[in-house]
Amino acid sequence: MKKINVFLLITFFATALLSAQNGYDVGASATDFKLENIDGTFVSLSDFKDAKGFIVVFTCNTCPYAVAYETRIEALNKKYASKGYPVIAIMPNNIEIKPGDSLSAMRQRAKERGFTFPYLIDHEQSIFPQYGATKTPHVYVLEKTNDLNIVRYIGAIDDNYKDAEQVNTKYVEEAINALLAQKQVSISKTRAIGCSIKI
């Protein structure tokens, strides 16, 4: 019996360690947060009482892939916020390494590009590791169920960073459309090149 307990304990810690290292997989419950927005307020997922879910995007000013997707991130918010899936953008980089990602630079960029979504800063760099984000841009689509936010999609926005016109599959849109139709998300994980998050 003791042996089993020890075994269970080891398994438990190993799993905890593993998930701490790798972040969320599809189906995991995502943590809420309270992060500073570019307007000085603090934003949490729980503030969005009417949301059905969220498009959480780890992104920044300085990564060319993030820049390539700026317009498309804004378009996602325009299209889906009213349907219950607002974009929540989180800037995860260490701003000592990337001064171009400071809160004031973020504010400037949001103004220039007309972002209508919250653009938050992970000051303590404590949220992105829990999600398991490793790069920008890195998207997590969450579905709100009772009190939990369940991860339904992880990965890229679509399959052509170069040209929005040439995209074959809009991964994030397909995931949300499926969720809105109460269907299974068919492509729930994708990979794309991005800039490593600066720690």
């Binding site: 399959d159 052509n160 170069k162 990979r191 800039c195």
Partner: peptide, 20 residues
Amino acid sequence: DVDMNSWIPKIDKKWDGAIP
């Protein structure tokens, strides 16, 4: 090659796309 989701796992299953 823009279709990253198809070729990244062929280089390594563990690679999620961050470089280097």
